[in-house]
């Protein structure tokens, strides 16, 4: 197991957001987390990154508990986020954003290697490297956000809504690239509203509802699940009369 949640309870003040949640993600997988608004998906991501601390339960990364570690230490151990709504540093250049992704790593051949990798995955990012990040289009910003996360050379990439607000063409590109990144050896845990696309590229998925895991399994099986089809794939079941 690369990442495990064991009976995680997370609160925002009095609000009980995650309720005894369990996840288990194997190295090399793409795992998708589905669910409606305010079900705890983003809180899951923040709990992994250590921006939100669980009240009970254990988060295990690479065999060691990490729930008490500061965010920087988690990044050092190989967890990198692609944040919801991109969250680039808007007044820094594209290149500086990529540098921030590698903040905890030394400059050197490894850095250059990763930069080349990002540029070959996203030729547009290379073209725009000296542009101010806030002036890019949404799709370009998403590419920079993914590139920035890759600059940390992560073992686990936590993506929060990578397709949000993108045009359909970009959505497909983004999902293509997620698969490529995964094939190059990075494990991916992905929160996604676009369940249709997510289930096409994911190996497995969890379905979260009001803070509880209500369903989990192989992506292929979930695609056929009637509840998933109705609730997340937009297929109404016509009642037989």
């Amino acid at each position: 197991m690369l990442l495990e949640f064991k009976d995680i309870d997370t609160y925002y003040g009095d609000l009980h957001v995650l309720k005894k949640v369990n996840y288990a993600i194997e190295e090399g997988e793409i795992v998708s987390l589905l669910g409606g608004n305010a079900c705890g998906k983003s809180t899951t991501m923040k709990t992994i990154m250590g921006v939100v601390r669980p009240v009970r339960g254990t988060v295990i990364f690479d065999g060691k508990p990490i729930e008490k570690l500061p965010t920087a230490e988690r990044v050092k151990r190989g967890i990198a986020p692609v944040l919801e709504a991109r969250r680039l540093f808007p007044r820094m250049t594209v290149f500086e954003n990529l540098e921030m992704g590698a903040y905890l790593r030394a400059r050197g051949p490894e850095f250059d290697e990763d930069l080349e990798r990002v540029y070959s995955l996203f030729p547009r990012v290379k073209e725009r490297r000296n542009q101010i990040a806030g002036t890019l289009s949404g799709g370009e910003q998403q590419m920079v956000a993914m590139g920035r996360a890759l600059m940390a050379r992560p073992r686990l990439l936590c993506m929060d809504e990578p397709s949000m607000g993108l045009s359909p063409i970009f959505v497909e590109q983004v999902f293509d690239i997620i698969q490529q990144i995964n094939k190059q050896g990075t494990t991916i845990f992905m929160v996604e509203q676009n369940a249709n696309m997510a289930l096409q590229i994911a190996h497995r998925a969890y379905v979260l509802q009001t803070g509880q895991v209500v369903l989990s399994g192989n992506a292929a099986d979930l695609r056929r699940d009637p509840m998933i089809r109705e609730a997340y794939l937009g297929e109404m079941q016509v009642p037989v009369t």
């Binding site: 921006v51 990044v75 680039l88 808007p90 921030m100």
Partner: peptide, 23 residues
């Protein structure tokens, strides 16, 4: 400088900066 860039990043988006590993 590295720390100077971290300062700018923190000024622009503290939470994102923190998730890049900025203390």
């Amino acid at each position: 400088s590295r720390l100077g860039k971290a300062m700018r990043a923190t000024a622009q988006d503290p939470e994102a900066a923190r998730m890049m590993g900025v203390e």
